[in-house]
Design a protein around this nucleic acid. Structure first.
Ligand SMILES: [Mn+2]
Ligand SMILES: [Mn+2]
Ligand SMILES: [Zn+2]
Ligand SMILES: [Zn+2]
Lengths: 148, 148
DNA sequence: ATGCAATTGCAAATCATTTGCAATAATAAT
DNA sequence: ATTATTATTGCAAATGATTTGCAATTGCAT
């Protein structure tokens, strides 16, 4: 199903340490998220996984995504749609611009959590688990095309 | 269904100007969002509206929310759940802390859009329509209760 | 008051995600 | 290596949120 890479053993380790089993379907989903360069939704992950392993079920994809989120190996992104997107946990904090015209997702890094802690009084005593900025608008290309 | 207030006439104006009709069900939904001090989800809006007008349908609530969002009279909030929340378009830009323990929503103001435009190079040429920060974590109270 | 398009309620449809369960397979123990 | 123990899987059916088709109703310009 999926043979191996540098990342694979460390993934197996992480799962096993958490009392989880390292299955081929989980390896496949992880691989697709990593190769997909983030921002895939559950169904897209499912479709791509299916090309490689046609017996895989959508429930397994969902269950795996849950688990990976739980283990902090993926982030779940919310683009204001009614489904989520997933990306491999990135090294540095970054956020996303989503173009309402073409759907393109542009990443930018911005250490929001740090700024918030400094700048926002309501933040005192609040223990941050997860911060997400999302910006919707029109990218360069689409903006040009549309004004007129 | 709903009689009137200072806001009502301006709402009627806004709708009519946009070629929309000012119906009692729309007035009711708007009123509930305003009184509810924001952060209600569609179903909660529906339940509250129903107490006052039992024939109102859930589709009408959804259709109205869509329209109000389109006309920029409400904001749709995404708390990382699989449904949305709504609040009357606020005067000043503010964002939300959501407590994973008790569900409480704490507001804070932070002019993110301004900062982003200054600080983020990817922002050049991007035309912002909507910016949302959401922070999930544990509030003061819950944090205390939980550690141990 | 009239006419007509916009809006409504209702039921059925759709979309995203979850769940129950019996069969299968990953790991730990032999 | 074999076996036993349980987590995991696939599948089908359930759920939750939102949307849609349609005939009946109603706002609003005339
Ligand atoms: Mn990203
Ligand atoms: Mn608010
Ligand atoms: Zn674009
Ligand atoms: Zn709390």
């Amino acid at each position: 199903m999926y043979s191996g890479s540098i990342k694979m053993n460390s993934s197996r380790r992480k799962l096993n340490d958490a009392g989880k089993r390292f299955t081929p379907q989980r390896a496949l989903v992880m691989d697709i998220i990593r190769q997909g360069r983030g921002h895939l939704d559950a169904d897209e992950i499912f479709r791509r996984a299916r090309e490689r392993e046609s017996r895989l079920s959508l429930s397994t994809v969902y269950r795996t995504l849950h688990m990976l989120k739980e283990l902090d190996m993926v982030d779940e992104l919310h683009f204001g749609e009614n489904h989520h997107h997933y990306e491999a946990k990135p090294a540095r904090e970054h956020h996303h611009l989503v173009c309402l015209g073409c759907g393109r997702v542009i990443e930018f890094s911005y250490p929001l959590s740090r700024y918030l802690k400094k700048a926002v009084p309501e933040m005192k005593g609040f223990d941050i688990n997860e911060v997400e900025i999302s910006v919707a608008g029109y990218c360069d290309r689409c903006r040009r095309a549309r004004r007129r």
